[in-house]
Amino acid sequence: WVPTKREEKYGVAFYNYDARGADELSLQIGDTVHILETYEGWYRGYTLRKKSKKGIFPASYIHLKE
């Protein structure tokens, strides 16, 4: 896992994603996520609506905010 280059990196989910394991994070369309790390097509972070739950999710489900 590699920390993100920018201190504040955010994105928005444009697909729903159902977590398949305890380390994964479920997403709903429109969720804003804070991205902490990246690795081979995956991000690690949390949604702003539930900051206490961190997990991994596919990068392809996220539109990055500039």
Rank of each mutant, 00 (worst) to 15 (best):
G55D: 02
K53W: 06
Y46E: 04
G21T: 14
V2C: 12
Y61G: 07
I29T: 06
A19C: 06
K5Q: 10
G21L: 06
L48H: 11
G45N: 03
R44N: 04
G41C: 07
H34S: 05
W42A: 00
Y10D: 04
H34T: 07
I56W: 15
G41Q: 06
S26D: 09
Y46C: 12
L48P: 05
E8W: 11
K9P: 03
T4E: 07
I62N: 01
D31Y: 04
Y39W: 13
E7L: 10
L64M: 06
W1R: 08
K54S: 10
E7W: 14
P3M: 02
W42L: 02
E66W: 13
D31M: 06
L48D: 11
L36H: 03
W42G: 00
Y46A: 04
G30V: 03
G30A: 01
K50C: 15
D23L: 07
L64C: 13
Y46I: 05
W42T: 00
T38N: 05
D23Q: 09
L36W: 03
R49A: 13
G41T: 06
Y46N: 06
K65S: 13
D23I: 05
T4W: 09
V12M: 06
H34W: 14
D23P: 04
E40P: 10
S52P: 06
R20C: 10
T47Y: 05
W1I: 07
R20P: 03
L27A: 00
W1M: 07
D23R: 05
G30T: 00
Y10E: 06
Y10N: 02
K5P: 10
L48F: 10
Y39K: 15
S52W: 14
L36Y: 06
T32Y: 15
I62Y: 01
K54R: 12
D23S: 07
A13K: 04
T4N: 09
G45M: 06
E24K: 03
T47M: 12
A22W: 09
Y46H: 14
P58Y: 05
L25Y: 01
L48G: 06
W42C: 04
E7S: 14
R49P: 13
Y46V: 06
K9Q: 13
I56P: 02
A22L: 09
K54L: 14
D23C: 13
H63F: 10
S60Q: 13
V12T: 08
S60L: 08
R49M: 10
N16S: 10
Y39G: 06
F14Q: 13
D18S: 11
A13Q: 01
E66K: 13
T32R: 13
Y61K: 07
I56R: 08
S26Y: 04
S26K: 03
R44A: 05
L36V: 07
V2R: 13
T32M: 14
I35F: 03
V12N: 01
E66A: 13
G11K: 03
A59W: 04
V33R: 00
A19F: 01
L48N: 10
K65I: 15
P3W: 05
E7I: 10
G55C: 06
G30W: 06
R44F: 15
H63N: 08
V12G: 02
R20T: 09
E37D: 08
E40C: 12
A22K: 12
S52F: 12
Y15S: 14
H34L: 14
I35M: 14
G30P: 01
V2Q: 12
K65D: 11
W42K: 00
L25I: 14
E40Q: 14
K51A: 11
V12E: 05
K5N: 14
I56M: 10
Y39C: 14
